[in-house]
């Protein structure tokens, strides 16, 4: 019991995730800045931002639904942290696992996006409502391809649990190479999930001010920012676990370093993508997802179905 509690709260649970989120945000920002030939923030900037925001006044608009407005940031953090517990980090065993947890993790990762929507909706301000509608439109566009892309490796592994998938690829090294198209698809979709350029449409600063977060300030905004940081780590870990399951059998120290490298690589890839594109319009984004991303994910699924038949003979 005490062991699980430690795992949930300290390592690799909440506190570890907070630390990892801070590091991820710093890495993302400095790498982004360096690619733009800027200097970038000092190492403590994400923490300083968090402290600064937390010290500011919490303003809740009179028109907003006060309960929802305050609850949403907490729900968002909770959902993201929970999903992390089912993802195998190093080795092939997650902290908790059961058959079907892949679906649960994907759903839990949808919850932050839903909270963004609700937060925007219940702020009742114009910009926030427009942002909320955009959030949900975008969610519909990328969610299906994401499911297909993540389920393809599961199909090949014949397991609906992330730990099971990891175990399969541990037993069959190099099979993960078949899933590379899925990796590409999910990297693009992560941009949408994390609301980064070119899919930062819901919070497009020059169009709708702060989007869903327009009315947020102080601690609540700090919580949302933390959610996005944590989500970045969790989603990258998920991608690493599903699509990059190599080198799992070297014990925990090497495994942990390898895990960090994988996550860093995923974040670097996201960061590169967000640096070299312009923001799309919402209709272009939906078009793009259905025209290119969904067929690619479908293709991955078909390939894996065929492969499964071939390989099992």
């Amino acid at each position: 019991m005490a062991q699980s509690l430690f795992n949930i709260i300290v390592f690799p649970g909440f506190l570890f995730l907070c630390l990892a989120g801070v590091c991820a945000e710093y890495f993302d920002r400095i790498f982004h800045a360096r690619m733009q030939n800027r200097k970038g923030p000092p190492w403590f900037q994400p923490v300083a931002d968090f402290i600064k925001l937390s010290a500011k006044e919490d303003i809740i608009p009179e028109e907003a639904d006060s309960f929802m407005f305050r609850a949403m940031p907490v729900v968002a953090v909770a959902a993201t942290v929970t999903s992390f517990l089912y993802i195998p980090l190093w080795g092939s065993q997650a902290l908790f696992s059961f058959e079907g947890d892949v679906i649960v993790v994907l759903y839990l990762l949808t919850i932050p996006t839903m909270t963004f929507f609700l937060a925007g909706w219940y702020s009742t301000s114009l910009y926030a409502s427009v942002g909320a509608v955009r959030t949900i439109t975008q969610l519909f566009a990328y969610e299906v391809p994401l499911f297909m892309a993540v389920l393809a490796p599961a199909l090949l592994a014949d397991s609906w649990s992330l730990s099971g998938i990891a175990a399969y690829y541990r037993a069959h090294p190099l099979y993960w190479v078949f899933n590379l198209p899925g990796l590409a698809v999910s990297l693009v979709i992560l941009l949408g999930k994390l609301e980064k350029v070119p899919f930062d449409i819901p919070e497009a600063e020059t169009e709708i001010v702060g989007g869903v977060f327009t009315e947020y300030a102080g601690r609540y905004l700090a919580f949302f920012r933390m959610t996005i940081d944590i989500e970045m780590v969790v989603a990258s870990s998920l991608v690493a676990a599903v699509f990059l399951p190599f080198g799992l059998g070297f014990g925990s120290v090497v495994g942990f370093i390898l895990y960090l490298l994988k996550v860093t690589a995923v974040i670097a890839a996201i960061c590169l993508l967000r640096t070299i594109f312009a923001r799309l319009r919402i209709d272009q984004m939906v078009d793009f997802c259905w025209k290119y991303i969904a067929p690619a994910a479908l293709l991955q699924l078909l390939v894996n179905i065929v492969l499964k038949g071939v390989l099992s003979q």
């Binding site: 790498f31 360096r34 030939n37 200097k39 590169l272 070299i276």
Partner: peptide
């Protein structure tokens, strides 16, 4: 060419900042 700037930004990520 999607991501036309990729080469340029990667090249600059190793250079000292201009600021």
């Amino acid at each position: 060419i999607p991501g036309k700037m990729a080469k340029e930004v990667l090249r600059h990520s190793l250079k000292p900042p201009a600021t």
